[in-house]
Design a protein around this nucleic acid. Structure first.
Ligand SMILES: [Zn+2]
Ligand SMILES: [Zn+2]
Ligand SMILES: [Zn+2]
Ligand SMILES: [Zn+2]
Lengths: 127, 127
DNA sequence: CATGGTTCTGCCAATGATTCGCAAATTATA
DNA sequence: TATAATTTGCGAATCATTGGCAGAACCATG
C-alpha cells in the first residue's frame, strides 16, 4: 500500500506549473488545462496542487482575494519575491535571518523555530 | 456624508481585541462578545474587523485552516512573532531589511517596495 | 497479455466562511 | 424632538474548497 502512481493528469498539471513561473490558483490551472485540450477535473487539480505542496515541490500562498495559489519551488529553504507587474516569482536565499533570530531572543525573549517572508516589487524585466 | 460614528458594537469589538493580544477570528471575537453579554451580530464583527484593518489599526493573517484572523497593532511598520503555544503576538522592529533590499537589487535585479514577514516559536513566558 | 489489488479520477453534493441586500435601529446635530 | 447620515441585524446568496463514492487507470505478477 501507499504506492505512488505517475498519471497523465498529474503530469499535465505539473507541466503547467513548470511553464508558468508565478503563483496560480486552482481555477487558473484548470483554465490552462482546458486551453491545452487536457481533460482534467477541477477536483483533481485541487488534489494535485495540495499533494505537490505536501511533498514540498510547490509553495502556496493566499492571494488578495483569499484564494490559494501555488508555484513550483526548486531550492529548499528560501523566500519569494513577487513582481507586482507580471507576477514573476524569484526565489530568494535567506542569509541575513540570523540577525532576526538573535534580536528576537535577546530583546523579546522569543525563541524562533520558523519564519515566513514575502517580498513585493518589480522584477528585472518589468523595471 | 462619509462621517464616522462611534458606536457601542465597535467599541465592544475593539475592547476584545485590545484585551487579547493574539490573532482572533471573527467567530472567536463573536463568541467572546457573547460571553461578555454584548449583543453584536456576526456581520458587524466581520465589518468592524475589516474596517480596523483598512484603517491600519489591526493586522490580519490567514491561519492554518484558512480563516482570517486579526490582532491590534500599535507601532507602525513592524512584523509579528507568534507563539506556537499561547498564540501571543510580539511586535518586532524591522531593521535588518536593508540587507535583503540590497541583495535583491544587486543579485536578482528586483526592486523592492514592500515585504511581509512572520516569525514562529515560543514566547518568553512559554519557554 | 489477462488478473487483481491498489491508487486515482470524475462527478456532484455538501460545507462553511464571508459577503450582500435591505429595512429597522442608532448616532450626531440642531 | 425632528432630520439626515450611518450602522446594524437578519437571512439569503456566494463561492472556493472538500467529501463520498463508483468507475477508470495504473502496475506488478504469472
Ligand atoms: Zn515582472
Ligand atoms: Zn528563511
Ligand atoms: Zn507563548
Ligand atoms: Zn519590515
Amino acid at each position: 500500500m501507499c504506492a505512488e502512481y505517475a498519471t497523465r493528469p498529474r503530469e499535465q498539471i505539473a507541466q503547467i506549473l513548470r511553464s508558468e513561473r508565478r503563483y496560480l490558483s486552482a481555477a487558473e490551472v484548470f483554465r490552462a488545462l482546458q486551453r491545452a485540450r487536457a481533460r482534467v477535473s477541477l477536483s483533481t487539480v485541487y488534489r494535485t496542487l495540495d499533494r505537490l505542496r505536501a511533498k514540498g515541490e510547490a509553495s502556496s500562498r493566499i492571494d488578495e482575494q483569499g484564494e490559494a495559489t501555488y508555484v513550483i519551488c526548486t531550492t529548499s529553504h528560501h523566500h519569494h519575491a513577487i513582481c507586482r507587474v507580471c507576477g514573476h516569482v524569484e526565489e530568494v536565499a535567506c542569509d541575513p535571518m540570523e540577525r532576526f533570530t538573535e534580536a528576537l531572543k535577546a530583546y523579546h525573549g522569543f525563541e524562533l523555530d520558523a519564519h515566513a517572508m514575502e517580498f513585493f516589487g518589480r522584477c528585472a524585466r518589468c523595471r
